[in-house]
Amino acid sequence: MKFDNETALQAFAAQVAPHLAPGDVLLLDGDLGAGKTSFTKGLARGLGITDYIKSPTFTLIREYPAGRLPLYHMDLYRLEDGGAGDLGLEEYFEGDGVSVVEWPDYLGEALPDGYLLIHFLKDDFDDNKRTLTFEAVGPRAQALLAALNVA
């Protein structure tokens, strides 16, 4: 799925939000500046969250409880050398909200059983363009992907 700009990416993410249910996990994979946090901003807007969304790079996890579903935004970039298994992330993954994880490669043993993995790829020639591809792991993620009709 291709996007010409950040506005279009956020609009798509807002359209994803109504399909989300408690315990859904979205793993966002892509280079720095690929649009992961921008996507999360649109998702939050679609969930009815009006708080300012910023990357939790230094705090690791930001909680936004004031939407249709709570949003748990995680950035594991600083855990390149491990440690995700010590954070108790399963409480978020199995909780009452939606978990969005940037840099999921660093989850290690904390990787949940089911998730929707979204790959973000920047265009080589136009810094505003993005391509997203999707991988569903587990029955709930497969149902979510089918509902989004993007496969």
Rank of each mutant, 00 (worst) to 15 (best):
A151H: 11
V25P: 09
A21V: 12
R140T: 06
E94A: 05
H19W: 09
D123Y: 15
G42D: 04
S38V: 08
L145T: 01
Y72P: 00
L9E: 05
P104S: 12
L28M: 11
L132G: 09
D127W: 13
L20P: 06
E102Y: 04
Y77M: 07
Y72I: 01
L26H: 11
Q142S: 10
G138T: 10
L60K: 05
R62S: 11
D24I: 09
F12E: 02
A13V: 11
G88I: 03
L26C: 11
A44S: 14
F93K: 02
D124P: 03
I53Q: 09
L9S: 04
I53C: 02
S55D: 05
G114S: 13
F93D: 01
E91W: 13
R130Q: 08
L145D: 02
G30I: 11
L89V: 00
E63C: 01
K129F: 02
K122A: 08
R62N: 15
N149P: 03
P56Q: 05
D75H: 06
R62Y: 13
L76P: 04
S99F: 14
A143I: 10
A141G: 06
D51E: 15
Y77S: 10
L76Y: 08
I61V: 15
E90K: 01
K129N: 06
L28R: 12
F3M: 04
K122V: 05
D29E: 13
L145F: 03
L32C: 01
S99C: 07
L28E: 12
A84H: 02
D51A: 14
F12D: 03
E102F: 14
E94I: 01
D24L: 13
D86H: 01
